[in-house]
Simulated assay, not measured.
Amino acid sequence: MLCEGAMMVALAQVLSYIKLMELPNGGSLTPAMFPIILFAVRWGLTPGLMAGFTFGLLQLIFDGAYAWGWQSMLLDYLVAFTPLGLAGLFKGKKWGIFVGTVVGCLGRFVIHYISGVTIYKILAPTEFMKWTFTSPSAYSLVYNGSYMLPNTIIALVIAAVLYKPLKKYILGQDLGN
């Protein structure tokens, strides 16, 4: 499990450099979340949360962290990537990779949303996508949703493509539990 976790975290880090889009205040579209979600669904909640935390730490160190102080570093990296491991709640479930992807991504979105409302509120009023926002809540919802929803879709598409050929692996049937 430990070796597989290290490989999945490393794969996620490498995939994080494939940026399909990058936003000005942090956030990007990448296929990076999928290996963490896959690991979580395969091994369970605690290992998944640890993999998500480790990936968040690597993102903070190597991805040129966009942060407004230590609070932002904590929330937007260490705390935000950890909930990807919530996918582990669906370990061994037939369609767990899909539900786990949605739950893990939703957990990450919630943390980014909280960060946007509490830390980035100093940017209000601000303009994003040709809209002017005076509400930190609305801004955080739109800003974080603009990359988290597509990232969730990317992870779901990867899961759909790999589900049939990797079904035994995803469900952990090769582990001989």
Rank of each mutant, 00 (worst) to 15 (best):
L171P: 11
Y163H: 08
L89F: 12
G172I: 01
M33N: 09
A40N: 03
Y113F: 15
T54A: 15
A32E: 08
L11E: 07
M73N: 09
L175T: 02
A12C: 06
I18A: 12
Y120V: 13
W95E: 14
L162C: 12
E22P: 05
C3P: 12
R42V: 00
T30Q: 01
C3K: 13
F109M: 03
G100W: 08
W68H: 12
S115W: 05
T118S: 14
S146G: 08
A155D: 04
F39Q: 04
F128C: 15
Y17W: 11
C3Q: 13
K93N: 00
F109G: 00
K167D: 00
P83A: 10
G85V: 01
A6F: 11
K121Q: 15
K168D: 15
L2S: 12
T118I: 15
A40Q: 02
M21H: 14
N144K: 06
S16A: 15
Y163T: 05
L141S: 07
Q71R: 05
M21C: 09
K168Y: 03
S115I: 10
L75V: 11
T46I: 12
N25T: 13
A155V: 09
G5A: 03
L23Q: 07
K93P: 00
Y169R: 09
G145H: 05
A6K: 09
W43S: 08
D174V: 01
N177R: 09
Y169G: 05
E127K: 13
L29W: 13
L162Y: 04
R108K: 14
A10T: 08
L49S: 00
S137G: 07
L49T: 00
L86K: 02
V41C: 13
I154L: 09
G172F: 05
F55A: 03
A32M: 10
L15N: 02
I97K: 02
A87I: 05
F55E: 02
N177A: 12
E4Q: 07
V41D: 09
A159R: 01
V110M: 10
L49I: 01
F90S: 09
C105N: 14
W43V: 04
G85I: 02
C3G: 12
I154T: 04
Y147V: 00
H112V: 06
A65E: 06
C3S: 13
M73E: 12
L156P: 11
W43D: 02
G69R: 09
D63H: 13
G5P: 01
L78A: 07
I170C: 08
Y120N: 10
T30D: 02
A6S: 15
V110N: 03
L149T: 04
K94G: 05
L171V: 11
P136N: 10
A6H: 07
A124V: 15
S115L: 06
K130D: 15
D63G: 11
L23M: 15
A51G: 03
G5L: 02
V9M: 03
